[in-house]
Design a protein around this nucleic acid. Structure first.
Lengths: 237, 237, 237, 237
DNA sequence: GATGAATGAGGCTTCATTCAT
DNA sequence: CATGAATGAAGCCTCATTCAT
């Protein structure tokens, strides 16, 4: 085996290991944030949840905020990209938003971890979130095509985001989990100028099954939360 | 002067002093929370802002949470009672909600301190807030009278509260302060089933001037924030 | 008792307590520096030696360096002022330096703590030391009056300070303590241009007994080092 | 090619590589010590300066102290051996010391790195230094031959070493670099009993040009400090 | 009731050292 | 022999809380 190949191999293996460790820390951090909120002493809990040493943590994240930002972005991006991939092909902006919000709320319902994370740090979904990359485009198209009316982009954003997150929050705290999000979505649609009947019609469309990959952050965190699994890769002697 | 009278006098004076000190601490805490968020090192900042000693603080509040709860409740109650006093006399539940939300958003606009406090601890407005005492009643009446439709009380609550708080948050962060909240209120109304034209009509009603007392928490905090005033009662030698 | 008197009293008592605690910390720090050197983890040892909590330490010194500076200055000032008070009255600059260096070396011999402190942080005696306030004046006067010659102020300073500190260091490390410093002082004097015979003569003058106050830093530290005394003011239950 | 030869060759090449790596680490360490002092976080800086991995470092040095000792000894030995080779041939012990100290101070002046290293860890030049192998011999010979007088070996050592190092230190910190060391050397000579006129005469002798090899530690470190050179042997891809 | 020095648990961060690759 | 991720002991520092005055 040539030296070059060896070095390449080493480099690749090392990079992969690094990536796995980073994912492991982010996964653990998501669980902790969901449980303890975004303030306060997180690092100790995270390293316990990830079963790594203090030093290792600091090889990946320097501060609390850096960690929170990483989790938020990773989680957001993952979910929003999934949703956008589904609804992006629809012609009707109203249908895109209707289905997108429904999918988001369904995810928050399916994965209590997500709902709790939202409830813990509502404002963490800052302007870096992909939501502010995707949503305004849909809104603008809806306004241009006359599907939406009587709102500015800002008002529509506040209405959609505020209502959706507050509803998701309810899933985290409310005792009954029977909440069907369709009513909330209908209200949102009416708010941005869709007629009652059309709003109803949009909600009757079958929602495509959201395909959350088994190795996604959401699934892995969910599995760990449910089963009290140890962190991955941890060899038990 | 009889002994009884003296004791009464003393007791009364002492109680007044206690009340003033408590108000001073809450006022300072509001400023600190608005600036630093609900997490983090609060007490030290609060006692510095109130210019009292550490020990004194603990004569009034036992913990962080107790303090936050006191500020939240005091601020909420004060503002919501003011609003409720105005709108409570209206016959039309839709008008009550329309004007109430407008007044709230106007206050958040007039008092950046309030907007920042909301942005800092959005979730602090927990279920103990008077909002959950007042709003559901109006919603139920609106549903019963047919003013609202196609929503449950929960959906209406999430829509109104989520949108209102998100809009208020925008005031704290957005550069432009031109935000006219009327559009947001119209969208909310449409969302809960009010027709477009009626929503427009409701927003054309003149908003009663909200009468925030000069000695209210909001006014005192606002004045201090603007003028960098020292805490009240501080005698300068 | 009037309020004013009470407040005055309280203030005074508090200030005195603060001063005592500061002295206690500096005293402990001197012992630790002498033993462990000026680098490395000092704070933990100091608080142990002073028998106070970590928090208390940070009420008085923010960093390692601040502490070292305080100890160095306090010790230096104390000793050098004592010496200067004695020799300052002499007419002859050569005698001032001869006796001053002898007194310094005698102190380093009498108080091994001092010698060790010097050995631990030779360079700690930075330019803020009083030595650079007193010595140059004497040197200049000696040059002006013709007592010294063939040297600049800088060269004389380096010769005196370098030789004195190196000799003091020897006391800290050498097994035999018989070192009589007079030979070193004579060599210094010759180096700065005093003739052999006059150097000898200067060393025959009787050295005034240095009067180190019993409550001086040097004496207190010495006593504690010798007797393994606990820190002062510590009440034993 | 015989197997033996191959093995020999491999062994020799390996030994040479080892030696180069060791030199590289020591060179980097010298720069770091000169800049950061002998306390504090050294290893991380050294491996960064040498551009090697953590693990590699521990193939060569086990601890901090081992590294410092290696640098100190290497540097000292190199310089003192150079000086001793020059002055060792002189008959007159006074001339040996006069020229030796002059050469040392000239080196400290030429190589600020050396001056800083001395200033950083003055006491690092412990008793293992070659100075304590060479100097006492010269002093004893000078005393025996009557060139020096009125001093013991210890006093002469303290005077010479203390003054020389303090003067060298001045080069590291003083703004003006004009310092001509000859005055200091004259003062040292007078201190150990050489007459004024002879001291002057000794300083008028031309100083042999010190021949610091281009591949010496001092030269390599100096070059790197001046030119911000990367460590040697680093292949750039 | 007010004060502020003292406390110490608890979190944060570094860095020398190890070890599998 | 080189690499660099992982380790965890050890230090640093803050800050909520207590308590003698």
């Amino acid at each position: 085996m040539s030296t070059d190949t060896t070095i390449d191999h080493r480099t690749r293996v090392a990079a992969e290991r690094r990536e796995r460790m980073r994912a492991r820390l982010i996964e653990s951090a998501m669980l902790v944030f969901a449980e303890k909120g975004v303030g306060g002493s997180v690092i100790q809990e995270v390293i316990a949840a990830a079963d790594v040493s203090q030093g290792t943590f600091y090889n990946y994240f320097r501060t609390n905020e850096e960690l929170l930002a990483a989790v938020t972005q990773e989680l957001n991006d993952e979910l929003l990209r999934l949703i956008e991939r589904e609804v992006g092909s629809y012609d009707d902006p109203a249908r895109r938003i209707a289905c997108g919000v429904r999918m988001f709320l369904r995810a928050a319902h399916t994965y209590p971890l997500l709902a709790r994370f939202i409830a813990a740090g509502l404002h963490a979904a800052g302007p870096s979130s992909l939501i502010y990359a995707y949503l305004p485009v849909h809104i603008e198209q809806g306004l241009a095509s006359g599907r939406f009316r009587d709102v500015t982009v800002e008002v529509a954003l506040d209405l959609i985001v505020g209502t959706t997150l507050t509803t998701a929050q309810r899933f985290a705290t409310a005792a009954q989990a029977d909440a069907s999000p369709e009513q909330a979505v209908a209200a949102i649609l009416r708010g941005i100028g869709v007629s009652r009947s059309e709003a109803q019609a949009l909600l009757r469309t079958k929602l495509p099954a959201i395909a959350v990959p088994a190795d996604s952050l959401l699934e892995r965190g969910h599995a760990r939360m449910q089963n009290q699994l140890p962190p991955p890769d941890s060899e038990v002697g």
